[in-house]
Amino acid sequence: MGREIGAGRASPSMIRRSASLLRRWVAGGGKRSLHSHLRWAGFFFVLPALIHLVIFKFYPMLQALRLSFFRYDLMSPPVFTGLENYKLLWENPLFHQSFWVSVKYMFGVSIPEWFFALGLALLLNRRMPGRAVIRLAYFFPIAMSQIVVAMVWKFMYHPFGLVNTILETFGVGRINWLSMEESALPALIAIGIWRGIPLFGVIYLAGLQAIPKEYHEAAIIDGAGVFQRFFYVTVPLLLPTIMFVMVLSLLSAVKVFLNPLVMTEGGPNGTTRVLPYFIYETGFAFFRMGEAAAASMVLFVFLFGLTLIQLRLLRRGGVE
């Protein structure tokens, strides 16, 4: 057991205390007033989720921070090495490469997604015959498993796969998409975009439908054209949704792992080794847990900063 790493478990007295609180709450409503009961009730409803997240998110996060200062291979006890891991990362060209691959992938996937998904939502929000069926067809891929997607696309990108077959009819020669340095990452990015559009489309569509019709009608009466209506009515009112989609798409793009793993194994030449892949490889293939944890911290700080900037920017946009 990895006792060495663990800070103490929850102490028995803590457990006893919370148990007695819980008992008092369940019995509540009798002696004590409803309202003090309610103050606890809300908290107890949230508590299970909170406990879960403490155990499986916050505590690991702190552990990652701690671990990033140790050398640890899962077998021998960890050794404190200070900033050594960060220094190793800094000097590791593979880490630099990975970082930039991740950045390219993130923005390469999410920025087109914002626009395509919005376009899709606008299309599907129009009245047209068979709209329900078309919507269903567009949203169906939401249900598809990543592994299915990965397998299908690996096959699609095969030198004799569908992608090349189609391109050939346009006079483009056959390309081995996944094994060429220039094309491997763009190929994965294309999959990411294709995969993300339906879900973000639904979210946008929901946002569009939440805009009361009166606003558009008022704008029409005021003589606004289609584009003016889009920029002066739709966009401002959709801003919370846009913000949400932007954050969510970046966060989900940065997690990509399965595709590089089963389609390219991070290659060719590391051009598709995204950070999660780097972290996985460092930790579980090379057993350099400390370094992997340090890489996680770098990624976290990056994400955190990015999210903050986004929220700040969009909040400012929202106020104006």
């Binding site: 997240l53 499986f56 690991p60």
Partner: peptide, 29 residues
């Protein structure tokens, strides 16, 4: 309450992919 909500939301930035190593260690523990 708001703090709880924010804490929960902030874990959106801690996907498993990022806390992979320590989560594994917790589960092992």
């Amino acid at each position: 309450r708001e703090l709880c909500f924010r804490l929960i939301l902030s874990t959106l930035m801690l996907p498993l992919e990022i806390v992979l190593v320590p989560t594994f260690l917790v589960v092992r523990e």
